[in-house]
Simulated assay, not measured.
Amino acid sequence: MPSYMSSSRDKIFQRPHNCLMNGSTRSLSIGSMPYNFVHIHSIQSVCDILLEMGIDPDSIFEKAGTHTQIFETAETVSFAMLGRLTALAAEQAGCAHFGLLVGQRATLASLGLIGTLMRHSETVGDAVQALATHHDLLNRGAMIELIVDGGVATVSYAPYEPETDGVALHCERAAATLTNVLRSLCGATWNPDEVLLPRLHPPDPTPYTSFFRAPVRFEQEFAALVFPARLLRRSIDGANPLIRASVEGRIRRFEAAIPSDVTDEVRRRVRSRLVQNRIEKDQVAQILAIHQRTLGRWLKAEGTTFRSIANQTRLGIAKQLLADTEMSLAQISSVLEFSEPAAFTHAFRRWTGTTPSAWRKEQRAR
Results as ranks from 00 to 15, higher is better:
residue 276 Q to T: 10
residue 118 M to Q: 02
residue 178 L to M: 11
residue 326 E to V: 00
residue 261 D to P: 00
residue 25 T to L: 07
residue 165 D to A: 09
residue 336 L to G: 06
residue 343 A to Q: 03
residue 31 G to Y: 13
residue 239 A to W: 14
residue 343 A to D: 06
residue 134 H to F: 15
residue 182 L to N: 06
residue 218 F to L: 05
residue 3 S to R: 15
residue 218 F to C: 03
residue 43 I to M: 14
residue 240 N to K: 07
residue 77 V to N: 09
residue 105 R to K: 12
residue 283 Q to A: 03
residue 182 L to A: 12
residue 101 L to M: 08
residue 133 T to Q: 01
residue 312 Q to G: 02
residue 231 L to G: 06
residue 325 T to E: 12
residue 352 T to F: 01
residue 123 T to M: 02
residue 30 I to Y: 04
residue 78 S to Y: 04
residue 51 L to I: 15
residue 285 A to F: 15
residue 276 Q to S: 08
residue 280 E to C: 01
residue 295 L to M: 09
residue 344 F to C: 04
residue 353 G to D: 01
residue 96 A to V: 00
residue 41 H to I: 05
residue 116 T to L: 12
residue 26 R to P: 01
residue 208 Y to S: 07
residue 305 T to M: 13
residue 88 L to T: 08
residue 280 E to I: 06
residue 292 Q to H: 05
residue 361 K to S: 05
residue 266 V to Y: 14
residue 206 T to K: 12
residue 229 A to L: 04
residue 155 V to I: 13
residue 310 A to G: 01
residue 190 W to G: 15
residue 50 L to P: 12
residue 312 Q to H: 13
residue 310 A to W: 12
residue 37 F to E: 15
residue 357 S to I: 08
residue 247 V to T: 11
residue 159 P to M: 00
residue 270 V to T: 07
residue 173 R to T: 10
residue 80 A to I: 07
residue 34 P to H: 04
residue 28 L to A: 07
residue 350 R to L: 12
residue 160 Y to S: 05
residue 339 S to C: 00
residue 21 M to S: 00
residue 253 R to N: 02
residue 272 S to V: 01
residue 186 C to M: 15
residue 301 A to S: 08
residue 306 F to I: 09
residue 234 R to V: 13
residue 262 V to W: 10
residue 353 G to F: 02
residue 287 I to D: 13
residue 137 L to I: 11
residue 271 R to N: 03
residue 151 G to H: 06
residue 213 R to E: 15
residue 283 Q to T: 04
residue 362 E to S: 14
residue 336 L to N: 07
residue 269 R to D: 08
residue 64 A to V: 00
residue 311 N to T: 11
residue 84 R to H: 15
residue 303 G to L: 10
residue 195 V to E: 01
residue 288 L to M: 08
residue 25 T to E: 03
residue 196 L to I: 00
residue 211 F to L: 13
residue 281 K to R: 14
residue 276 Q to D: 08
residue 234 R to D: 14
residue 201 H to T: 07
residue 281 K to P: 08
residue 345 T to D: 06
residue 12 I to N: 01
residue 225 L to C: 04
residue 14 Q to I: 08
residue 291 H to P: 09
residue 147 I to K: 13
residue 13 F to Y: 13
residue 157 Y to S: 00
residue 184 S to H: 04
residue 296 G to P: 07
residue 204 D to F: 03
residue 339 S to T: 09
residue 225 L to M: 05
residue 123 T to V: 03
residue 187 G to Y: 01
residue 51 L to A: 06
residue 360 R to W: 10
residue 345 T to I: 11
residue 266 V to K: 10
residue 97 H to P: 02
residue 257 A to K: 02
residue 92 Q to Y: 03
residue 351 W to K: 01
residue 181 V to T: 11
residue 346 H to F: 14
residue 91 E to G: 13
residue 130 A to L: 07
residue 126 D to A: 14
residue 44 Q to H: 07
residue 289 A to T: 12
residue 19 C to Q: 02
residue 274 L to I: 11
residue 67 H to K: 14
residue 29 S to N: 02
residue 127 A to W: 11
residue 242 L to H: 00
residue 247 V to I: 14
residue 253 R to S: 02
residue 294 T to L: 09
residue 319 K to P: 05
residue 325 T to C: 02
residue 337 E to I: 08
residue 32 S to T: 13
residue 218 F to A: 07
residue 29 S to E: 12
residue 5 M to K: 04
residue 129 Q to Y: 07
residue 316 G to T: 10
residue 209 T to H: 09
residue 257 A to N: 07
residue 152 V to G: 02
residue 71 F to C: 11
residue 186 C to D: 14
residue 16 P to G: 12
